[in-house]
């Protein structure tokens, strides 16, 4: 009885437990990270809050008007997360401190928990379902260009090898993080879950401009000659469907005579309507007839 109640017994058992990973884990219970800690570490996992010069240590690595593709070094990220997780760890050379041994069990568990919910930040912002993930390979790019400021909503599609359009089944890789690095920053970071082979960057459809295909004005004769390629459509009820054909519409008379670069919008609308054999068109139909196509550039990884 005396030995049982002595503090030594307890200390010895405790010491044995903390030196035995299996027993320690057994005695730890569930120990999953609470939501607020998980989401904080989640942000760090996506490199939010890491000073930019830790990501790009030299400006010459990312000069103006450049795009740089990368793999995310998961060892670096794991070490970063361990640094954050080390709060409250006894930083002594004694490898067997309780706090150290606890972290040995807790760290992999919480890293796994954080990685499996890596998509939750972006999904929450978009109101979509977060895909499950183990973050085996993360790729991405940094884009530094005026484009980032001028085209705030530019779209990014990422495809794995063999999953790009024209290569069989189209597979899209999920985007983990895509944002400009500040309100007026010309640099954008994109992190993609998976090994991506091709990245398409396309214009945002909401900012596509109205354009015509040719315009010339002869000052002597005061004549405008202009054309616009129209995609014809048919209307049935409130459904509008494109026929897939195009016609070249002459726009010579679609400009004001006393100001030859000002478009007669109503006249233009009437002509678009007559090209499509409909009574009249509204601003929405005008919108898609006058809008120029989405500009897109594909970046494809080539193995040297």
């Amino acid at each position: 009885m005396a030995t049982l109640y002595s503090r030594n017994t307890f200390q010895n058992v405790l010491f044995d437990v903390q030196n035995d990973a299996a027993r320690l884990e057994e005695n730890m219970g569930d120990a999953s990270l609470p939501e607020n800690l998980r989401s904080w570490i989640n942000r760090l996992l996506l490199l939010k809050g890491v000073p930019f010069n830790y990501l790009v240590p030299d400006e010459k690595m990312l000069p103006p008007e450049s795009i740089r593709f990368f793999y995310l070094d998961m060892n670096w990220v794991d070490t970063l997360l361990d640094g954050a997780f080390s709060i409250g760890r006894n930083l002594s050379i004694n490898e067997n401190a309780l706090s150290m041994n606890l972290d040995r069990i807790a760290l992999p568990k919480s890293q796994k928990q954080v990685k499996s919910s890596a998509h939750s930040l972006r999904s929450a912002a978009l109101g979509t379902m977060a895909p499950a993930s183990d973050l085996k390979v993360v790729t991405g790019f940094l884009l530094r260009s005026k484009l980032v400021i001028e085209y705030p909503g530019l779209g990014v599609n990422a495809y794995p090898a063999g999953g790009a359009p024209g290569e069989g089944n189209i597979q899209l890789l999920d985007i983990l993080r895509l944002e400009a690095l500040g309100p007026n920053s010309d640099t954008m970071i994109c992190l993609i879950d998976g090994d991506c082979q091709r990245i398409d960057v396309h214009e945002a459809p909401e900012v596509l401009h109205y354009g015509i295909d040719s315009y010339s004005y002869t000052a002597d004769s005061q004549k405008v000659s202009a054309t616009k390629v129209l995609h014809t459509f048919t209307v049935s009820g409130s459904q509008v469907s494109l026929s897939g054909n195009t016609v070249i519409m002459a726009m010579d008379n679609m400009f004001r005579s006393n100001s030859p670069r000002v478009v007669k919008m109503t006249g233009l609308a009437e002509q678009i309507a007559s090209e499509n054999n409909v009574q009249s068109i509204d601003s929405a139909q005008m919108g898609f007839e006058m809008t120029e196509g989405v500009g897109m550039v594909s970046f494809i990884k080539k193995n040297p």
Binding site: R68, L72, M100
Partner: peptide, 17 residues
């Protein structure tokens, strides 16, 4: 962390003191 080629993990034993 943004490297030119794929590096497989784990390449480092964590946690560290």
């Amino acid at each position: 962390p943004l490297v030119p080629y794929r590096i497989d993990s784990p390449g480092i034993n964590l946690p560290i003191a």
